[in-house]
Amino acid sequence: MASPLILVFLFQLFQAIITAVGKHTLNEACWFFWSFLPFVPKATASKEEIRVRQDLMRLKKELTATSAQDDFAKWAKIRRQHDKLEEQYKQFASSQTTLKETFNSRLNYARMIALGGLRLYIQWNFTRQPMYWLPKGWIPWYGEWVLSFPYAPRGSVSVQAWQFACGAVLSMIAEALKALSALLFTKGARNTPEPAMKQPASGVKAE
């Protein structure tokens, strides 16, 4: 009977970690690894992009080196090339961002479906199973009714109640950790400059 208990806890832990890390960071990390894969079109496109960018830089340099007043024809010809390449480069950049956007939205959908599906599966599968039994007479009958809501046998804790409890405790722990780290880091930040502040003062005195 321990396995659904632990499964639900692990599931909640997993979710808590995702919220702690943040969706954006997670997406960025996924994109980073994804772009290394050989079959992703981005890898081949970027080579072309680098070439265009290099050409663009070269033309920019030429453009500044050429005097528009003295060599207008030459300058205008470079300018035409430059504008054409710049257009091309903008297209590259925009296609890159749209690629990333679609990737992100798909990732979000996938995560939503996976997590939601898993949660539904767990709740549905263990809904009539008691997670564990409460000792008789510890809590009044209405407390028992709430804890066994909706379908678990009276006197036990239902999967829903257990999930809720896990989630609440984990989020509390996360808050506590956040507060603690904030406390530690700000303290550390306050501690370190203090000797540094003192040192030049003593140095001045020594001189």
């Binding site: 528009a68 007043q69 207008f72 205008a76 300018r79 035409r80 504008d83």
Partner: peptide, 13 residues
């Protein structure tokens, strides 16, 4: 003149 030529080039593009 320079400015007129510059504008013309821009316009043609």
């Amino acid at each position: 003149e320079f400015l007129s030529l510059y504008e013309t080039e821009r316009m043609i593009q």
